[in-house]
């Protein structure tokens, strides 16, 4: 038996070709750009980071593609290996980061757009840095 027997056919979607009003798009994505603009302004004025929780919003997969396409990609892409891969990618708008947390099976566990100079997760925690220092000092003492 071949797959053709099943009367369901996958229709490929052109990435980036979709516009609000087209099938699959709910029209809920464009207002997020306005919210991001506001959050970036807030970051510049106060230095406080903020975020939009994408998994908490009624967005279709096509909406997310549209948003991702609109924001574009920037110069930095951080990959974090921690219980599954996480990617923290800067978008074409500096200070706006597209953050995707995946579980060990590769499925998306949560997705955010963070507005920050550097996402919190990228920074090393002082406690961890202290452990690193201990380790370095141990290596130094060993070599003596």
């Amino acid at each position: 038996m071949t797959l053709d027997v099943i009367p369901i056919h996958v229709v490929p979607r052109h990435a980036g070709a979709a516009l609000p009003g087209e099938p699959g798009l709910s029209g809920n994505a464009p207002p997020l750009l306005r919210e991001l603009a506001e959050q970036v302004r807030h970051l510049l004025e106060t230095g406080e980071p903020s975020a939009i929780d994408l998994s908490a919003l009624p967005l279709t997969p096509a909406d997310l593609d549209w948003l991702r396409e609109k924001l574009g990609s920037g110069e930095i892409a951080v990959t974090l290996q921690a219980n599954g891969e996480s990617t923290l990618d800067e978008t074409a708008c500096a200070g706006v980061w597209w953050v995707t947390h995946r579980n060990e099976q590769g499925a998306v566990a949560s997705q955010f757009i963070e507005v920050a100079f550097v996402p919190e997760l990228v920074k090393a925690h002082p406690a961890d840095v202290a452990i690193g220092r201990e380790r370095l000092e141990f290596m130094v003492s060993e070599n003596h």
Partner: peptide, 25 residues
């Protein structure tokens, strides 16, 4: 389990609990 793994878990959990993103920290 590294601290970042734990942070990531908390961020996801906060998202599930419909808490603001900052609550994960």
């Amino acid at each position: 389990v590294s601290r970042r793994t734990f942070l990531k878990y908390c961020a996801t959990l906060a998202s599930m609990m419909a808490l603001p993103p900052a609550a994960g920290l």
